[in-house]
Amino acid sequence: MLLEVRDLYVEFHTREGVAKAVNGVNYSVAEGETLAVLGESGSGKSVTAQAVMGILDMPPGKIAGGEILFKGQDLLKAKPDERRKIRGQEMAMIFQDALSSLNPVLTVGQQLGEMFVVHRGMSRKDAKAKAIELMDRVRIPAAKERVNQYPHQFSGGMRQRIMIAMAMALEPSLIIADEPTTALDVTVQAQVMDLLAELQRELNMGLILITHDLGVVADVADKIAVMYAGRIVETAPVHEIYKAPAHPYTKGLLQSIPRLDQKGRELYAIQGLPPNLTRIPPGCAFNPRCPMAQDVCRSDVPPLYEVDEQRRSACHFWKETLDAR
């Protein structure tokens, strides 16, 4: 297994109290595999990724427990300079907002080349040649001329390609893409997702795709982890989860999205709001919004039940949820 996150806990100490952002998350990614982490804002999907990358703001953040095994090594026990070596060379991240993730006062060539100067000890000249090569690879036209341009001179889609190029530069074995296409238009989103999938195949990388878009997930993922209030509530191979969700939250999400292929009647809406992370309800965190909630849901935290060999659901009534369709 390329990456294994085991029982990870992350909390943030704020003035309002302790916000429990991640509460015992387990997931794993193999080489060449795409794991989609699906969740709404505040579900802990990005915080988990930041903990894996080692870019969590600490304080206020604090990793309260768990292990992050990368190729067998526990990253949480690694020294800072070891981690720095892994970051960039072995794992890289693509952020949502390319414009604010790129340095506005450096040319894209300098930013791409920096990877090679720092990690590979190349000269500036060689690094620039490498940068042009990378820009060609992510299909930026006229790379030779554009290598000297600044981020603001590129369109949104091209900036995201540059982010991808930067992440790919050292051919890492794991890429974490945090909402990589959320800020892009659909036609450009399709281009960028295609590119990402192609490079992933070529380099046989593991990919963690963090998103809230059920459509994007269906398009590219092999397996899904659905997060709610800092926990994984359901994991499954992508085909099964869309056909028959085993958790009421997943089911609600699938039913609440408007469809392209039909003019809807009234949409099913999940009631209420996601919980405040400083005051997660007792029992199952989803119980106040759940149409199936019983007394046991308000008192006992559901474990991740084994639905079948590859599927898990954190619902006391996963069987009923499966059957109810």
Binding site: A190, Q191, V217, A218, V220, H239, I257, L260, D261
Partner: peptide, 17 residues
């Protein structure tokens, strides 16, 4: 280009990029 929330669609669906 709109991603459809159905993983079976990805194999047979024509995409205009």
């Amino acid at each position: 280009a709109v991603p459809v929330p159905d993983p079976t669609a990805r194999e047979h669906r024509e995409r205009i990029i």
